[in-house]
Design a protein around this nucleic acid. Structure first.
Length: 421
RNA sequence: GUGGAAUUAGUUCAGUGGUUAGAGCGCCAGAUUGUGGAUCUGGAUGUCACGGGUUCAAAUCCCGUAUUCCACCCCA
């Protein structure tokens, strides 16, 4: 039979790597709980229209990167390309606008984008995310950035820069777009072809261009930050004050532009230099029009998405040791198959008493069992043979120093628990 | 969607036209009969990514496809 491989852009996460994943998942859940965020679990696929409306019809994500398919009932469904739209749909659908605000939610999901694969980018990838819905002021923006700062700190990550920007609101954005267009129009001749396309479609994107020839024009371009309305300006200044108060350093980067249509005002990123050109480990921002867009009452919100693959890559690059799989406390070896049954039964009893134990399942010899015990990092080994079974006692061997001591078999779970303290 | 590099054992890789395709690590077994880590000895495992072509002869040269990695685009 021809071999079947994982589809392009997907991969298997296997032990011992899964231990590292579990460790960051636990750390994230722990920080979220402390900050008052509760977990939500939402569907992996939604009606395509949700993403068209929520993420935005003009975005690359919706235009060319979605896994969209008709189901057998003729509905158009799409694998989620990100988490926020689905969570906001659930927020509205389940009456959460009537809960005390802000409603603070977090999630661990995989998301799907049909893109070409490269470093830090996959077709199925994993995100941690938070959403805080129902608070319009900048304090909640700062709380969220503070949450991330604590999370990264607890993982031992340093040197992650916080970049901050404001991209305005529907009130001040049109005027800025006009100013930007007016500035760019006479310079289009000296800029790359792509930027000329961007100029028509979404002039904000021009600011993101890395093309050498476009840099002079970009440097002098007006920034949204300098064209904020009074409310947006006050919000941005308020956020900076809040961040100063909680002691989170940041830099203002007036070129940050998020690729999703729903962002308003605050946008931010946590950036590293260790993830190839995919330096953004975490990106987020405010989305004050999104809830309304998916059919709810006008409600402000802010959230972020954090790329788990990129996070783990960054931890590796910063030399943070990956969490290791749990080790076995006791290995029950059997001299021969006559003692094998008793060994397996003892192993079961010890496990039932709450201690991680292993035994031999393929009838290999004693020496192979000792090797296996050593390799799996077993703390203690007990060897069962005819003598031990007759006497009801066996020697408990400490694999660290090789010392042995006599224990009664029926008291082994208690003895172990005491020895492991 | 575009471009570059790659694909050989479980894994990391060597092998650029000529016998039964190799190494390290890992795995299995043994080194006097019931005890791990070190060392030594032996062993198993390959449709050489897949499909075509050139040739007396292809892992090796050519074409196509897939996948991986890197970059563009964009984003987590």
């Amino acid at each position: 039979m021809p071999q079947i491989k994982a589809p392009k852009g997907t991969r298997d996460i296997l032990p011992p790597e899964t231990s590292a994943w579990q460790a960051v998942e636990r750390a994230f859940a722990s920080v979220c709980a402390r900050f008052g965020y509760a977990e939500v679990r939402v569907p992996t696929f939604e009606h395509t229209e949700l993403f068209q409306r929520g993420v935005g019809d003009t975005t690359d994500i919706v235009q060319k990167e979605m896994y969209t398919f008709p189901d057998k009932g003729g509905r158009s469904l799409s694998l989620r390309p990100e988490g926020t739209a689905g969570v906001m749909r659930a927020y509205v659908e389940n009456g959460m606008p009537s809960l005390p605000a802000p409603v603070k939610l977090y999630y661990l999901i995989s998301a799907f984008r049909y893109e070409n694969v490269q470093k830090g980018r996959y077709r199925e990838f994993h995100q941690f995310g938070c959403e805080a819905v129902g608070s319009a002021g900048p304090a909640i923006d700062a709380e969220m950035i503070g949450l991330l700062s604590v999370f990264f700190g607890e993982l031992g990550l340093s040197r992650l820069a916080v970049r901050l920007n404001s991209i305005g609101c529907p009130a001040c954005r049109p005027a800025y777009h006009e100013a930007l267009r007016a500035y760019l129009r006479p310079r289009l001749g000296e800029m790359c072809g792509l930027c000329n396309e961007r100029f028509d479609r979404n002039p904000l994107r021009v600011l993101d261009c890395k093309e050498e020839r476009c840099q002079p024009a970009i440097e002098g371009a007006p920034a949204q930050l300098d064209h904020l309305c009074a409310d947006c300006r006050a919000h941005f200044d308020g956020l900076k004050d809040e961040l100063d108060r909680i002691g989170v350093p940041y830099s203002v980067d007036r070129r940050i532009v998020r690729g999703l249509d729903y962002y308003t005002r605050t946008v931010f990123e946590f950036v590293s230099e260790n993830v190839g050109t995919q330096g953004t480990i975490c990106g987020g921002g405010r989305y004050d029009g999104l809830v309304e867009e998916v059919g709810g009452p006008p409600t402000p919100g802010i959230g972020f998405a954090l790329g788990v693959e990129r996070l783990l890559m960054e931890m590796g690059a910063q030399g943070i040791p990956a969490a290791a799989p749990a080790t076995v406390a006791l290995y029950v070896a059997a001299v021969d198959e006559a003692a094998g049954g008793a060994a397996r039964a003892l192993c079961h009893r010890v496990r039932a008493a709450g201690v991680a134990a292993e035994a031999e399942w393929n009838g290999r010899g004693l020496k192979a069992q000792m090797k296996a015990a050593n390799r799996m990092g077993a703390r203690y080994v007990v060897v069962l043979g005819g003598d031990e079974l007759a006497a009801g006692t066996a020697r408990l061997k400490d694999m660290k120093d090789g010392s042995e001591r006599e224990v009664a078999l029926d008291r082994l779970p208690q003895e172990l628990a005491a020895a492991l303290k």
